[in-house]
Design a protein around this nucleic acid. Sequence first.
DNA 1: TTATGATGGCTTTTT
DNA 2: GCCATCATAA
Length: 674
Amino acid sequence: MIIHGIINGNYSGRHRGHRVPKAQSRKKLLKRFCFALRLSSYSYITQGRKIMDILQGLNPQQRDAVTHINGPILVLAGAGSGKTRVIIYRIAHLLSQGISPKHILAVTFTNKAAAEMKKRIEQFNETMDINGLWINTFHSASLRILRAHYPKKNFTIYDESDKSTVVKAVLKETNYDVKPNSVGSFISQCKNKMQTPSNHKPINFWEERMLNCYKLYQEQLEKHNGLDFDDIIMKTIHLFQESPQVLSHYQTRFNYLMVDEYQDTNYSQYLLIRMLAEKHHNICVVGDDDQSIYGFRGADISNILNFEKDYPSIKTVRLEQNYRSTKPILDTANRVIEFNRNRKGKQLWTEKTVGAKVEFRLLRNEHDEANFVVRTISEAMSRENRKLIDFVVLYRVNAQSRVLEDAFRMANIPYTIVGGMSFYSRKEIKDILSYLKIIVNPLDAVALKRIVNVPSRKIGASLVEKLEKYATINNLHLFEAMEKAELIDTLSDTQVKAVERFIKLIKKFMAIKDTMSISKLLNMLLLDSGYLESLKQEKTEEDKDRIENIKELVNVAVEFESKEQGIGLEDFLGSISLVANIDLWDDSSCVTLMTLHNVKGLEFPYVFLTGMEEGLFPHINSLNSDNIEEERRLCYVGMTRAKEKLLMTAASSRKLYGYGTGMPSCFILEAGIR
DNA sequence: TTATGATGGCTTTTT
DNA sequence: GCCATCATAA
Ligand SMILES: Nc1ncnc2c1ncn2[C@@H]1O[C@H](COP(=O)(O)OP(=O)(O)OP(=O)(O)O)[C@@H](O)[C@H]1O
C-alpha cells in the first residue's frame, strides 16, 4: 500500500501514531534530521567577493543596518520587509570586514532557521572561514555553553513528557488535585522569569501550592541531574552570575550579537542577551511587535518595545518596503492588525500593486472545507501551473489537521504535516534514547524507570517500588540501590539476579561508551539489551515499523558522526532533544499543512487560512482571557506569509470539542472582505 | 503482566 | 467528539 501523505515522519494521532513513513520517505526524514542536527560550527572556505556585492540586494535602510557595525541597533519592521535578510547580510558583511567568525553569535528562533542562515552565508562565496561562527537558537547556544562549563556535565535533558512524568509523581506525593499541565506551565513561567522556588513569594493559596510543586519538582530534577528546556536558559544565566570569568569569556568572545524574531523572546532570554552585550553593546536585534505570538510561553513584547531603554545610544531602523506579498494581501493584513491598540504602528508598501484578490469561503462543515481546499489546489495546479510546494494550509489547532489530512489522502495529493507525533517522540525511539541517557547519566531516574523492564526482565512495578523504598531510606539514588540489590532483604534471589543482570548490562556500556562510535554502541545496545529481539518476536506490522524506526535512529547516529568529528554521546542526545517539529520539515513535492505558530518566518505563494471561525480563531480561551490581540497578531502572521494568493475558509458547523460556533471570525469582518 | 473500560482533558509549544 | 492515560480486573 502506498500512502501518499505521511512523508515527513509526522504522524497524526489518527492511527494511534502507528503509521510510519515508507522507505523512500524515511530517507528524506533521515536527511532532514541530520540537517537539523548540524548545529555547531564547522569550517568552510569560499571564493572572494567584494563588499559592494554584499550590499547589493539591499535597500538603503537595510544597508544602513548592515553597515552599522558598532553599537546597539534595533530593526523594527513589518512582515516581509527583509529583517532576516538584514541579519544574514550583516554577518556576511562583518566577516568581509575581517571580523573573526569566532566573535559572532546570531540567535534564531528555530534550528531550521539557523541552518538556513548558515547556508545562505556560505553562499556569499567569500574567501572566508566561518569556523567558530555561532548561529543557534537560544536553547542550543545555551546548551553548548552548559556542556562546556556546567559542574555536572553529564546532565540529561528532560523533554515535555519527562517533565510531565515528574510533575505527576509530585502531584501524587502531595495529593494535590490539579492538572499536571497547569503545574508544568506554572513552573515554566517561573523559570522564564528567573524565579526559583526560594525567590518567588506566593500571593495566594493556589500559588503556594503551585510553588510547593515547583520546589519538589526541582528537587527531583536536581537529584536526577536533569535539565528541562527552561532550565537550559535559566542555568546558563545562573552559571554566568556565579562564574564571572565564564561570563567574561563569552562577553569577550561574542563581540557581535544578533537576534532574529526578537519580539518572541522571554525575560530569561532577554537577560541572557543583556549580560552578553553588557561590555560592548554591539547588539543588533530585529523583530516585529505585530508578530509576537508566543506570549503563552512567556514571550514579552516589551522586550522589543523597550529595547532602547537599555541602550540609550541605540540606532533604530525602520524597513517599510514589503518584498513578499501583493498589495491586496498586504492591505488585508494591515487592515486587521490596525485593530490592535498595543502596538507601534508602521508603514508598509509593496511594488506588487496588482494581484489576486483575497478571498473568503464559508463552507457547510469541516469536511466540505477540507474538500474545498483540496479541490482548489488541484485546480490551481492544472490551471495556473502551480506546484505542490507552492501551497501551505494553515490552521489554529493541530486537531484540525485530521480532516484535512483525510481529504488529501482521498484525493491522492502528497502532503506533509508539521507537528503532531514526531519521530523522536515515538515510543521505541524514546526507549532507546532512555538507554543512552542512563549510560550517560545513571541518576536519570525517569529514563531508568522507563526502560528498566523494557523488554521485560522481571523487574516489574512492585520490584521497582521496593528498590525505591530502599533508596529513599538509605538516601541513595535508584541506580545505586539497584547496584546494592543483594543487600536488600525484601528481595528474593531471582529478583536480585534480575536487577544485577540489568546493572551489569548498563555498566558494560558505561565503560565502553567513549571507546567506540555512537552508531556502533547503539547497535551493540540493541542486541545486548534484547530490545531488537523482543520486537522481532512479535510479528505485527507495528513492530516491523518500530524496527525500521530504530534502524533509522542508527542511521541518524551514523550521519551525525560523519558531520561532527569526535562527538560525544552527550552531544548527540542533547542535539536530538532540541530538534523541533519544524526543523524536520521538508516540502519537496508536497503540500504543507501546519499550525499558524509553526509558519512564522516562512513564505508561500499560495496560503490557505482555514477554520476562520469565532471561538476557534480567535480561540475561545483568548476571548475569555482578554488576549485577542495576540490572536490578531497570529492572524497577521498567517496572512503575511502569502506571496500571491490568500484564501480563507470557515465551516458553519464543526465537530471539534467545543469550538463549533459556526460564526465567521471577527478577523474576516476586520479584513473587510465581502 | 497484560487487556480492558472508565476517566478526564482538550490552544498554540519551545525546545 | 476523540484520544491518551490510568486504574482495575482477569
Ligand atoms: N532588498 C531586498 N530586495 C529584494 N528582495 C528582498 C529584499 N529584502 C528582502 N527580500 C525578500 O523578501 C522576503 C522577506 O524577507 P525576510 O524573510 O528577510 O523578511 P522578514 O522581515 O524577516 O519577514 P517576516 O518578519 O515576515 O518573517 C524574502 O523572500 C526576501 O528574499
